[in-house]
């Protein structure tokens, strides 16, 4: 079981209960208005996307402008998040760091998803022998729980932003693989695939028209749920000094840089961390909402 599988399972179970309660007309719930939490998550995401695309509009102050006289200023009207050891505006740095940070999270998620798709479809499609083999491989990979696989990967290939991103991706791949395999098997055994066979559709057509779309659609949900977690993991690695390194205005790197000043200047680490928390929470909420749409349409 991975974090991802836990999240995916949570996203599923709520929807299913709602559906069980609603009976045949449960689809009506799809059109219900978003709640307060969902609206807040949507606002947060909008803000993050704006920060990623047009940071200079959201935070006009130059994130790289050094002014040693202004170093270590606590949050104030001039510097809402305070300033760092070189007097740079932290709000501006956090906003300008959004793009790279999201990109890292997305990249790691894509790597994990790609690995998961390859392993999962191989297990689900290529017959019993491959399935057995992949399952054993996944069991072995799961024996490196949590960060362990990522850390081991970094030991072999050395620290740095690229390896850290790949490491996070690789360590999430087994979780994706297992979910995808399960989804594939469910779809392959489904009555509608059988119905297509009864109608005389060939294997290839059933695969393209029914199996793949119904297996891959949930990947968007998984990906959304996964991005937030990937950002948290990547930031943790950076914080530990194994990922992005300080000069970059990336959240993890800012954390790593601010780490030494925790007791004197908390705002150096607090605000980048806050943005990570906001991102992770918002993507989780959004992922569940997506899950609901996928389920209730289907």
């Amino acid at each position: 079981m991975s974090d991802l599988e836990v999240s995916a399972r949570l996203a599923r179970s709520g929807v299913e209960r709602r559906r069980a309660r609603g009976g045949p007309g449960g689809g009506r719930a799809a059109r219900r208005l978003p709640g307060a939490g969902e609206s807040a998550a949507a606002l947060v995401l909008l803000f993050l996307i704006a920060s990623a695309l047009v940071p200079q509009v959201v935070a006009p102050v130059d994130p790289l402008a050094i002014s040693p006289l202004e170093a270590f200023r606590p949050p104030s009207a001039a510097h809402p998040f305070g300033t760092d050891e070189s007097g740079r505006d932290i709000f501006s740095r956090v906003v300008h760091g959004t793009g790279p940070s999201l990109l890292l999270g997305i990249a790691a998620t894509l790597i994990g998803l790609a690995g998961g798709v390859v392993l999962g479809t191989a297990a689900g499609m290529l017959g019993r022998v491959v399935d057995f083999g992949v399952n054993r491989l996944l069991e072995v990979l799961f024996a490196f729980p949590g960060l362990l696989l990522a850390l081991f990967f970094i030991v072999i290939f050395g620290p740095g932003i690229v390896t850290a991103t790949i490491a996070v991706g690789v360590s999430t791949a087994p979780g994706y693989a297992r979910i995808i395999r399960g989804q594939l098997l469910t779809v392959r055994r489904s009555a509608y695939v059988e119905a297509a066979t009864v109608l005389g559709r060939g294997r290839w057509r059933v695969l393209v028209r029914h199996i793949l779309p119904n297996t891959l659609a949930p990947l968007f949900v998984l990906g959304t749920l996964g991005v937030g977690q990937a950002i948290v993991w990547a930031a943790s690695l950076s914080y530990l000094g194994l990922g992005a390194v300080p000069p970059a205005a990336e959240w993890g790197a800012m954390l790593a840089a601010g780490r030494t000043y925790i007791s004197t200047a908390w705002w150096l680490t607090f605000f980048p961390g806050l943005f990570i928390v906001l991102t992770a929470t918002a993507t989780t909420v959004l992922g569940r909402r997506l899950q609901q749409r996928v389920r209730e349409q289907g």
Partner: peptide
Amino acid sequence: PERERRTRRSLVGAVYQDPLASFDPR
């Protein structure tokens, strides 16, 4: 083999107990 059966599949249809499950949800 299924390949040879396929051309004559149109002769036989099936109706199930749970029709909803037998439709592609998309």
